[in-house]
Simulated assay, not measured.
Amino acid sequence: MLNKHSFDNPLLTNDQLVQSISQRCGLSAKLEQQLLQHGCELIQSAGIVLSLPQVAMASAQVLLWRFFHVCSLTEFSLRDVAMGCLFLASKVEESPRKIKDIINVFDYVIKKQRQHHHQQSAITPLEPFSQMFYDLKNGVTIAELQILRHLSFNVQVQLPYGLLVNYLQCLRLTSHSRVPQMAWNYLNDGLRTCIYVCYQPTTIACAVIFLAARQGQVKLPTKPAWWVVFGASLPDLYHISGHLLSLYAQPPPPGLPLTVEELLEYRNTLPS
């Protein structure tokens, strides 16, 4: 019989949920959310270019959320920590990538995103012996050490993808035309929200099925309730669904800051 604790992840405390360290340092909850979403998008985009498996990209995004709930965005560069999370996750998931490749890909992805918003000319590749390259290399190296230190070397991430497949099989939904793919997409999109640091994988897997089944107008057993059989509660399913749906309602604005210095300048341009 499967140990119910074998899939447990460290979750946020009540104090962290009420007010994060970044918010205590003067960042608004909205800006913090936008920055973390942006950091996750950078990780996903860079991971795709680096041909990393989804499990490595997903683990890196969860590590980003974990780190910035014990450290402040006003003290650590979002760009450097995002690179550090992907570098670390690629090793943990046994798909290591060279640090220079991660730096070059992040630089390219960031330049491409900012070019799109400012309509600049062709992207200039990063010079391998430039000061910028050495600054980025130093940044990602320090970030990796800070991640390990502040997370007490607990960088293992249990993900709900395997659970989702098992639950879909149990509910006889694997052959449905829409629900499995929608649920899988919700798992991926949920990485840009706080759900992976607020709920265990079993609850997240149930929530994406719950939302996908509602969107696909599929009725599932209620006597007994199927989510209770899998160890989830209805309020948690509603909360997770709310986080996912709010993600689509308000995408992050363009031009978000990626370093501590950029963040300071950016905050000064915001209305008081």
Rank of each mutant, 00 (worst) to 15 (best):
S175C: 09
L12Q: 10
A183S: 08
K223A: 05
I204G: 04
W184S: 04
L145Y: 06
A213G: 10
R267Y: 01
S177V: 13
V179N: 06
H243P: 00
G84Q: 01
V165A: 12
P253D: 07
E127C: 02
E75F: 04
Q217G: 00
N188Y: 03
F210D: 06
L145P: 00
I195E: 07
S95N: 14
T124P: 03
H150I: 04
A60G: 15
E262S: 02
L168Y: 08
V228P: 00
V62H: 06
L234V: 12
V70H: 12
F230N: 13
V155E: 12
A89V: 10
C198F: 00
L148C: 14
H5Q: 09
C25V: 00
I110R: 11
Q113N: 15
Q23P: 01
A56Y: 10
K223T: 14
G190H: 02
T269L: 14
V49C: 01
Q37I: 09
D135P: 00
L78S: 11
E127L: 08
F87P: 01
I142R: 12
Q217M: 13
Q16S: 03
R267L: 11
D101W: 00
Y248G: 15
P235L: 03
Y161W: 10
Y108G: 01
Q217E: 15
K137R: 15
S45N: 09
L11P: 00
C194Q: 12
D80V: 03
Q146H: 08
Q54G: 15
Q44D: 09
V179L: 15
N268F: 02
L264Y: 08
V260E: 11
C194L: 04
V62C: 04
A56H: 13
Q215T: 11
L31C: 10
H117Q: 05
K91G: 05
L245V: 14
L36N: 00
P125C: 02
H118R: 10
R172M: 07
Y196P: 02
P251Y: 05
R214P: 07
R97C: 04
V55M: 08
A207G: 08
N9V: 07
L270V: 05
V18K: 13
V70I: 11
N154Y: 00
L191W: 02
G84C: 13
P251H: 03
A89R: 03
P96Q: 06
F87T: 12
C198N: 12
F76P: 00
A46P: 05
A60S: 13
P253R: 02
Q217K: 05
D107I: 01
I43N: 06
Q113G: 09
Q113Y: 00
N166G: 10
F67P: 02
V157R: 06
G190W: 08
F153T: 07
E127S: 14
G255Y: 13
